[in-house]
Write a protein that binds this DNA or RNA. Structure first.
Length: 105
DNA sequence: GGAATGACGATAA
DNA sequence: ATTATCGCCATTC
């Protein structure tokens, strides 16, 4: 565990139900590391956080847990597009832009 | 130090 | 929509 890992896990825990963040989004939000680093953290220590809310930039689910993801998303009412998350609507920005502007839907 | 690797991402074909 | 490539960046060999 390092500082970066703690920050990543902290952000993932804050993703509200029904929303998701891409690996790259988290890296960009933190301002350090990159998608691969976020992925590394999730694969190693992601067991204690809502990992199913972290997906690929195109909305495809976590490798090896597709079934689990689909189940969770359907349970939380995450907007979906076929077998993938509808990033256009489910993408969470970290609780900044949407909290005041609530962009388009 | 250099090469390979990986829960990534964007682009081209 | 799917596959192939290239860029990225910390970790591991």
């Amino acid at each position: 565990m390092d500082h970066f890992a703690e920050r990543v896990l902290d952000v993932v825990e804050r993703i509200p139900p029904g929303m998701v963040m891409a690996y790259g989004d988290i890296a960009e939000y933190l301002g350090e590391g990159g998608p691969r680093q976020v992925g590394r953290v999730m694969s190693t220590w992601g067991g204690g956080v809502p990992w199913w809310r972290v997906v690929h930039a195109d909305g495809t689910p976590v490798p090896g847990h597709e079934r689990e993801c689909l189940r969770r998303w359907r349970e939380e009412g995450t907007p979906m597009r076929g077998e993938r998350v509808d990033m256009r609507r489910a993408r969470w920005d970290g609780g900044v832009a949407t909290s005041s502007a609530e962009i388009q839907e």
